[in-house]
Design a binder for these strands. Structure first.
Lengths: 168, 168
DNA sequence: TCCAACCACTTGCATATTGCAACTGGTTGT
DNA sequence: ACAACCAGTTGCAATATGCAAGTGGTTGGA
C-alpha cells in the first residue's frame, strides 16, 4: 500500500480507500449477505474474488478502520470480520450506486430486486438498515420495530424472484 | 475494454463502469470545476492524471453514455465534453462519497468546504445542483431561483477558504 | 486414533493495467 | 513566421491483478 496521496479532496481520498473493483463488493457481501468469515467471502460471492486479492483487501480495510477482526469462539481458526461505524456508513454510497446501476445498467432480475427496494425506500430505509447493521456488527441494541427488518425484507424479496424464475 | 462482466449485481456493474481511481474524478471536475476540454481536464485537476489514461477514460465514458462529445465552434481542434443525464445522475454517488470522505479521511480544508456544504445541503441541494448541470450540459432551461446557484455558492465558499488561508 | 474436509491464508508466475515522458500532427494568435 | 496551444498517441517500465497450487493448522465423524 502506498501512503502518497494524490490530493486532499474528499472524493479522491474516498476513492483511494475504496475505489477499486473489489473493496466495495466485500463490504456489500458483509452488509447484505452477512458474510463474516474469509471462506464465506471467498466462495459465496457472485463474482469470484481470488484469495490473494481478498486477503490483501481485508488487510487494507482493517488498516483503514472500516472493518475489524475478532476470534470466533466456536472455531480456533475462524476469525469474524465486522463492520465498524465507519464501514456501516458506506451504505449510502452503496445504495446510490445500486440505484444508479439499476436504472442504467443491465442488472439481472434477481440481483436487481434489492436495488429497487433500497432505492424506493430512500434514506429512511437506509438509516433503518444501518441501525440493524449496528446491532449485528457492533452489538448495539436497538428497539425492535414491528414486522420484518429491512435485511429480512430484502432477503425475502430476493428469494421470491429466484423461486419464480426457477419455476418458469 | 472487456465485455465479460462478473455479475448482474447493480453495485458490481456500476463499479465495472466507474469503479476505478480516475473516472469519477473526471466526472467530479466536469461537475464542480466545469472542465469541458481535454486540456482543462488534464492540467487543471488536483491529482495530475496522465494524458493516455485521460484519453482512455474519456473513451470509456463516451461508450457508456455518461458523457458526450461535440465540436467547439470557437476552435477547430477543441471538443467539448458534456455530461449526459446518466452522467449527471452520478452526482448523488459523488455527494455521498464526498460526505463520507469528509467525515473520516484527512481532507484538506479548502477542498473539504464543498463536501461540508454539499453534505449539509442534502438531497434537496443535490437535486438543485443537478438541475443546474442539466442547464449547463444539456441545455435544459430552468426557472431562475433567487440568489446564487448551488455551483456559485460552492465556488464562493471555496475561494473564501483559499483567501483566508493565503492571508495567514 | 485416523483421516477427509475445512480453515485462513501465502507463494509463484503469467497477464493486464497504470504511469511517465516524449512525440505527432494540426491550429491559433501575435 | 513562429511560439504557444490543442487533442491526443506511442513506447516502455513499474505496478496490480488473477489463477492455481501449496502451507500449516483445526475439526468432526468412523
Amino acid at each position: 500500500m502506498d501512503e502518497a496521496q494524490r490530493s486532499g479532496c474528499p472524493i479522491n481520498l474516498t476513492l483511494e480507500v475504496v475505489g477499486d473493483k473489489w473493496s466495495l463488493l466485500i463490504i456489500r457481501d458483509m452488509m447484505f449477505g452477512n458474510r463474516r468469515h474469509f471462506r464465506e467471502l471467498l466462495t459465496k460471492s457472485e463474482e469470484g474474488i481470488s484469495s490473494n486479492i481478498l486477503a490483501d483487501r481485508l488487510k487494507t480495510l482493517l488498516d483503514q478502520g472500516i472493518i475489524t477482526w475478532a476470534d470466533d469462539p466456536s472455531h480456533k481458526q475462524k476469525g469474524i470480520y465486522s463492520l465498524t461505524e465507519q464501514g456501516i456508513e458506506l451504505l449510502p454510497i452503496l445504495a446510490q450506486m445500486s440505484g444508479w446501476g439499476f436504472k442504467y445498467l443491465p442488472v439481472s432480475e434477481e440481483l436487481g430486486i434489492r436495488a429497487k427496494l433500497l432505492s424506493q425506500g430512500g434514506p429512511k430505509m437506509w438509516a433503518e438498515f444501518m441501525d440493524e447493521l449496528r446491532e449485528t456488527h457492533l452489538g448495539v441494541k436497538r428497539r425492535k420495530k414491528a414486522g420484518l427488518s429491512v435485511g429480512e425484507r430484502l432477503q425475502k424479496a430476493y428469494e421470491k424472484v429466484v423461486a419464480r424464475k426457477g419455476k418458469k
